[in-house]
């Protein structure tokens, strides 16, 4: 049995698998299948300062090896999360990450300040949601704005701060460097890639929001490439995600440069994916004679 424990920004995870924000709600539904301590951590559904109703349906479309979604940050607001969900989550014996999104610097700072006085273990700044006009992506697409929002939130955030990056940018490496320079403790990547599907009979986009965010196996190679590039350029840990579906994908993402992983879309088809991926990783490490999963991180040998 290899050791699956990993550490990100001083926070210890029982294993490298974290549920990706927005795919796992606040955990209750999946706790029907297994204790949530099966996961190293949970990144909760993205929350905002005030409750939001989200976009009209349809919010999802299937694509070759993937899905498009445009939920539009439906959530009950930060206060509701702290009062109704967080106490229960904290009893689940897993790392709890609050994922926050907003319209303004002020929104992000207020939420970071509020959450700093709670039991959440880490804060993940979602500046990469492609599905709402004011969901923070305006902060996520240039080095200046990523640097500025990181700096602003850093002042109010007493928890380890993760910046979640959008892949819908020209140069993700320099954006990651800006986040690091302004005090990010870790990077998570990637959020969804903007995409679209159209019903050829009606001429209407399948998703009511017209465009949506692409996730699932279709984005995996893009995510691996981006994690690899960023890992070469920053010294803070990376939480890698985007299409991870099997233990082989998990191993590949770690080798590319990730310290921990998030999984989302795969859960819709196989809620038990975390159990299977952890088991597969463990056997892989044993077969290679590797004692700890941390030894896999960034072992890529580029040509």
């Amino acid at each position: 049995m290899a050791d699956l424990k990993v550490k990100v920004a001083g926070v210890e995870f029982n294993n490298p698998l974290i549920a990706a924000s927005g795919t796992f709600g606040f955990g209750r539904e999946y706790s029907e299948f297994y204790p949530l301590s099966t996961l190293g951590g949970i990144s909760c559904k993205g929350i905002t300062l005030q409750a939001r109703p989200g976009n009209p349906a349809p919010r999802i479309a299937e694509t070759p090896s993937g899905i498009l979604n445009a939920v539009g940050l439906q959530n009950p607001g930060v206060d509701h999360f702290v009062k109704e969900d967080l106490p229960w989550l904290k009893e689940q014996n897993t790392v709890i990450i609050a994922n926050i999104a907003g319209n303004s610097y002020d929104d992000y700072c207020k939420m970071a300040e509020k959450l700093s006085d709670t039991a959440v273990d880490m804060i993940e700044l979602n500046i990469s949601c492609p599905n709402v006009k004011s969901g923070g992506v305006q902060f996520g697409t240039s080095c200046e704005s990523v640097g500025a929002i990181t700096k602003a939130v850093r002042k109010y955030c007493k928890k380890p701060l993760i910046i979640k990056l959008s892949p819908n940018v020209t140069d993700i490496v320099s954006i990651a460097q800006s986040a690091e320079a302004e005090g990010a403790d870790a990077i998570s990547m990637i959020n969804t890639l903007t995409g679209m599907r159209i019903d050829i009979n009606t001429g209407r986009p399948i998703i009511r929001n017209n465009t949506g965010g692409l996730s699932g196996p279709a984005v995996f190679p893009v995510a691996v490439r981006m994690v690899y590039q960023v890992a070469q350029a920053v010294n803070i840990p990376i939480i890698g995600m985007g299409g991870i579906s099997t233990w082989q994908d998990a191993a590949e993402m770690l080798i590319a440069g990730a310290t921990a992983l998030q999984i989302g879309t795969v859960l819709f088809k196989d809620p038990y994916a975390p159990v299977k991926i952890n088991k597969g990783l463990n056997e892989f490490l044993d077969s290679k004679g590797i004692k700890s999963v941390t030894e896999l991180t960034k072992t890529i040998k580029p040509w």
Partner: peptide, 27 residues
């Protein structure tokens, strides 16, 4: 009917407009 992801209430994609206990519109 609505298009679904997780099927269990976690991903919030299968929204429909309904009234809550107080008669307010919600997804």
């Amino acid at each position: 009917e609505e298009r679904m992801g997780c099927g269990i209430g976690a991903c919030l994609v299968c929204a429909c407009k309904t009234l809550d206990k107080n008669g307010n519109v919600e997804h």
